[in-house]
Amino acid sequence: MYQTKYHKPASVDEAVAALSSAEDGKVLGGGQTLLPTMKQHLAAPTDLVDLRGIAGMDAISAADGVLTIGAGARHADVAASATVREAIPALACLAGGIGDPAVRSMGTIGGSVANNDPAADYPAAVLGLGATVVTNSREIAADDFFEGMFSTALGEDEIITAIKFPIPSSAGYTKFPNPASRYAMVGVFVAQTGGGARVAVTGAGQDGVFRAEMMENALSSSFEAGALDGATVDSRGMLSDIHGTAEYRAHLVSVMAKRAVDSAV
């Protein structure tokens, strides 16, 4: 039988302790990926460390040009947050478009970012905004955090506590949902920042979320959709499945990037 020991720590330290003493422990954020995976017997952790009992993990605040979102903030919280809507409307919009109402009422930003599903929305925002992932032991720049499909720089017993997003002058996110699952088949986050334009693509790449450099260069000189004419991504790096060939995904990256720029506020 599949048996799992459930922990509900009251602090990050307790959570880390529970995790490090477990044989094969997993952190439970909102459970929107982990629990279905366990139900299908595709994952069978010996211990589940539920972060939802840790006070303050879902705090959202903005100060000094940085929006900080606690790892336990649920997608619905982020979508509805006046702070997020004012600081980075594109991020609120992205959160409001994840999954369905049930998923948004349970799933958390920390869980999504830690899981780094290649078709998840949040990684595009984290990378596209050049955010910083804060853990119990350190801060990791987005560019160093995502290491490929379902793979991140997180250490074995490391827990994300918050994400710090530098507030851009404008940003936009547009996704093309997979017709069946409605995960992002191609999702493009564009941001105009002090350091130039950033373009991050989720759903499409074989190695998970990535930055589209040719598009960043084009937008850095002129942040408008027309600047992206001729700026492409290489289809050789794209995923291919029954819903979208690599060529189709590469094409959609260009289309979604333009639409993201058009929608940017």
């Binding site: 017709p179 069946a180 699952s181 995960y183």
Partner: peptide, 21 residues
């Protein structure tokens, strides 16, 4: 929207709502 797809080996690629639309 809908289509059952088997791969060449006869494994069903659309055995959940993740892929069967």
């Amino acid at each position: 929207l809908e289509q059952v797809v088997y791969d060449d080996d006869g494994q069903m690629l659309t055995a959940s709502y993740m892929d069967y639309c």
